[in-house]
């Protein structure tokens, strides 16, 4: 039981990290990035390849994952510089699919759809499976805390104020003398690095990466987490991620309460319950559970 709750805490933490990364790009700067699973995948593959093929240490692998993902973010940001709203959403969604297709087909690099197994995690010989899960949950949540703290500082700083200005009206920000493109690229890089960090942590936790693990569904979960939690705030992103994992996993226990239903009905019921719960949150709290509050400037 403890291992299970710890494992769910790990997944909640990974989703929270992704929600934080998305919050910076979308919540603060208003760029609809639906390609987050692509950056997550790049992070996971980077560290998996470095550690499995070249024997790097996981710490160096995860750090490099964040750097590579951030660098990819800068390229994507420059390419999509002129796109806004729905158009940006479509292109970034396409980016994530491209990453997944490259991972499926460039067999020499990624081992294709068979994936890369044996990614080193915590030394299993030293700890019991329960301790491994608890420790990893600790590591992931320390990462969440640090990232939330740093992004919170960034958001409160003049930098964050500019991002909010760009989100509300790019033209006004530009007229005020802000170099909009530069801010956008910087935001994309930082956000993508956080997504890559999440991917790196995922790879070392599960020990296996394959294209199937990076389906668009994860992007949808994270967007939902952020929307339900409240866009624009770090606390909202984290709460939303915990809520989504609690909902998707908590509903597994429906099966024990309804033992007479065949599993396919329980699966359908689960999807229904998750959907209804999120609709309820969004219809009664459209601003999210912990919405952004912007204090008026002192006169």
């Amino acid at each position: 039981m403890t291992s299970y709750l710890a494992a769910m805490a790990v997944f909640a933490g990974l989703y929270a990290l992704m929600a934080l990364g998305l919050n910076l790009i979308w919540g603060l700067a208003g760029m609809v990035n639906l390609g987050l699973v692509g950056f997550y995948a790049i992070g996971a593959y980077t560290t998996a390849l470095l550690c499995v093929r070249f024997g790097w240490s996981p710490v160096a692998g995860i750090a490099t994952a964040a750097v590579v993902s951030g660098a990819t973010g800068s390229v994507v940001a420059v390419i999509t510089a002129r796109l806004k709203g729905d158009y940006l959403a479509i292109v970034t969604l396409g980016f994530a699919e491209v990453v997944r297709l490259v991972a499926s087909n460039e067999i020499w690099l990624t081992n294709g759809t068979s994936g890369i197994s044996g990614v080193p995690g915590l030394p299993r010989a030293w700890f019991s499976p329960e301790q491994v899960n608890l420790l990893y949950a600790g590591i992931v949540w320390v990462a969440v805390g640090l990232v939330a703290l740093l992004l919170g500082r960034l958001s409160a700083a003049p930098f964050g104020r500019v991002l909010r200005a760009i989100r509300e009206d790019e033209m006004v920000a530009a007229v005020a003398g802000k170099r909009v493109l530069r801010f956008k690229v910087q935001t994309f890089v930082v956000g993508a690095a956080v997504l890559g960090l999440a991917g790196g942590l995922y790879a070392h936790y599960v020990g296996y990466v394959a294209p199937d693990a990076f389906q668009p569904l994860i992007t949808i979960y994270v967007v939902l987490a952020l929307t339900a939690g409240g866009t624009g705030t770090m606390r909202g992103a984290i709460l939303g991620a915990v809520l989504v994992v609690a909902l998707t996993e908590g509903t597994r226990f429906l099966g024990a309460a309804l033992p007479d239903l065949p599993p396919v009905r329980i699966a359908a019921l689960r999807e229904g319950v998750i959907g209804v719960a999120l609709i309820l949150v969004l219809s009664f709290r459209p601003q999210g559970l912990l919405p952004e509050t912007i204090k008026p400037e002192r006169a």
């Binding site: 494992a7 997944f11 599960v206 599993p263 329980i266």
Partner: peptide, 20 residues
């Protein structure tokens, strides 16, 4: 019976529940 959703990510969480 658990649903793996044809997805390794969900499969790992379902397997954790079955095992733990």
């Amino acid at each position: 019976s658990e649903d793996d959703e044809t997805n390794p990510d969900a499969g790992v969480r379902a397997a954790r529940k079955l095992i733990d």
